[in-house]
Simulated assay, not measured.
Amino acid sequence: MNDFTWWSASGPWLEVIPNTTETLATIALPPSGLIYSARMAGREMVDPDGVFTQFYEHLLLPEYFGWNWNALRDCLQDLSWISATHFLLTIDDAEFTLSGSPEERVIFHRALTDAAKYWATKPELPGQKKTTFRVILLSSLQASRALAAEFDG
């Protein structure tokens, strides 16, 4: 694991962490403000419908959610229905997420990364606090190396 704070403006905004890692609280704790944490089950996300269902249920996506990748991307870059300034998405057993569909997995990872970059680079408007958005993918030690390589590649 890199020596960084999950909430820094410079990123990384998405981190792959082995589920055996002990994480220092000083790295994981968000800055002051309202935080929304969604913890999702990668084992329930083996196909796109599973991904959309986990996000719909855990991020309380609006009724108009379109159940497709573009709709998920749009919602991740909005989040106005949740009163928070800091968002932490955690996916347990992340190696199972879309494990049978490498093409869709790339699309999913890109949607997560794009959302994190969007929030990191969105200008802070007067009277509003900066929104932070982080994604943590928890997986086995062996799988974490492969997952990290997918983002580096």
Rank of each mutant, 00 (worst) to 15 (best):
F4I: 09
W7M: 06
S8T: 07
A9T: 04
A9Y: 11
P18D: 00
P18W: 01
T21S: 15
E22Q: 11
E22V: 15
E22K: 06
L24M: 12
A28E: 09
A28H: 07
L29N: 12
S32M: 11
G33L: 00
L34H: 09
L34E: 14
Y36C: 07
S37H: 08
S37L: 08
A41Q: 02
M45T: 00
V46I: 09
V51C: 08
F52M: 05
F55L: 04
Y56M: 00
H58D: 09
P62D: 07
E63R: 12
Y64T: 09
F65S: 04
N70I: 04
L72M: 10
R73P: 01
C75V: 10
C75A: 15
Q77N: 13
D78Y: 09
L79C: 10
L79D: 01
S83W: 06
T85F: 13
H86F: 06
H86I: 00
D92W: 11
D93G: 03
T97I: 15
L98H: 04
E103Q: 15
E103P: 05
I107L: 10
R110V: 07
L112P: 00
L112G: 05
K117G: 06
A120H: 03
A120M: 02
L125S: 11
L125N: 02
L125W: 05
P126G: 02
K130L: 05
R134D: 02
V135P: 05
L137S: 01
L138F: 15
L138Q: 02
S140N: 11
S140V: 03
L141C: 00
A146L: 14
L147N: 02
A148G: 10
A149R: 15
F151D: 01
G153M: 06
